[in-house]
């Protein structure tokens, strides 16, 4: 550097900033936020012998869980207890949002309607959503969000591990990608559950209360996917390390998968869909 502070020196920096954005190889950017179609180049033909209706329904259910969870995580934005948690919760939200987008896109390809991801997310009503009810409950305090994340990520991870062998190769690939993400989500939630359970009297009390609030919604998860053993094992390990009581999981009542939701889903969707529905002719 010559030390001559000419505008020319800095223009050179501007030019180098503009480089390296188009090759699609830069792993710095969150999934799906670039300028490329994330499914570009993937063979999306439905293989013979695959039940398209079953695949589409599975995709929409899993996408709804992910989208509703991501929306709740987005509500933590600017409200997290520490900047590191701000970054981590957004990371998890972005992973789930990415999963939802791929799953909706797959549903639209196989159900014959050709709907895009936004048709599913923005132009269906609460009664059409198939997410489990635990995902839609309000964010509560940090303890509640951590316990919910621990349960949902353990449950989804156990199911995705099985789904990675699905006979639809696109769904299998989405699940395989999701396994890596969900492993981190579960780890993050488990570490915080232990810190909070084994922290101060107040954090311990809040964790007990959070477990009490989450437990009534756990039974529903096992009526959907047969992964109770995996989830209970995670909860057993974490509650033991955290000095918390192992929850007694009651039988399921009500089911988001049948479109039966709590009163919390409709307002969540009203907010999520507000701009898109106010301008139905617009392109974004």
């Amino acid at each position: 550097m010559s030390g001559s502070d000419t505008a020319h020196d800095d223009d050179h920096v501007y030019l180098s900033l503009a480089e390296g954005h188009d090759d699609g190889s830069d792993a710095r950017w969150a999934f799906g936020t670039g300028f490329e179609d994330p499914l570009y180049g993937v063979d999306t033909t439905v293989p013979e012998g695959v039940d398209a209706g079953e695949v589409a329904a599975t995709c929409v259910e899993l996408a709804d869980d992910a989208l509703v969870s991501a929306q709740r995580l987005a509500q933590w934005c600017t409200r997290a207890p520490e900047l590191e948690e701000e970054v981590a919760l957004a990371n998890i939200g972005l992973d789930l949002l990415g999963q939802a987008r791929l799953l909706y896109a797959r549903a639209g390809q196989v159900d014959g309607t050709g709907r895009d991801e936004d048709a599913y997310a923005y132009f269906r009503d609460a009664g059409d959503f198939r997410n489990v009810r635990l995902a839609e409950l309000p964010i509560g305090d940090f303890a509640f969000s951590i316990v919910r994340l621990l349960v949902l990520s353990s449950w989804r991870l156990a199911h995705f591990e099985r789904l990675a062998a699905h006979h639809d190769p696109v769904l299998a690939a989405i699940a395989a990608k999701g396994v890596k993400e969900l492993t981190y989500h579960r780890q993050y939630a488990a570490e915080w559950a232990v810190r909070l359970g084994d922290g101060t009297d107040e954090s311990h009390r809040r964790m007990r209360s959070a477990l009490d609030q989450v437990t009534p919604y756990i039974g529903e998860l096992f009526t959907v996917y047969d992964v109770e053993g995996d989830v209970v094992e995670v909860l057993r390990q974490v509650t033991e390390a955290a000095g918390l009581p192992m929850p007694q999981i009651p039988a399921a009542h009500g089911a988001g998968r049948d479109g039966q939701h709590t009163e919390h889903l409709a307002p969540l969707l009203a907010e999520l869909q507000s701009v898109a529905r106010a301008h139905p002719e617009a392109t974004w």
């Binding site: 950017w29 969150a30 999934f31 799906g32 936020t33 989208l67 991501a70 929306q71 987005a74 509500q75 934005c77 600017t78 900047l83 701000e86 970054v87 957004a90 990371n91 939200g93 972005l94 949002l97 990415g98 939802a100 987008r101 909706y104 991801e117 936004d118 997310a121 923005y122 907010e271 999520l272 507000s274 701009v275 898109a276 301008h279 617009a282 974004w284």
Partner: peptide, 21 residues
């Protein structure tokens, strides 16, 4: 972020605000 009118815009905005953190 919670009101972004497409899922792509939602992801872009969520990631941007995360970058600011």
């Amino acid at each position: 972020i919670t009101r972004a009118p497409s899922l792509r815009r939602k992801a872009i905005l969520f990631a941007k605000v995360q970058d600011e953190a």
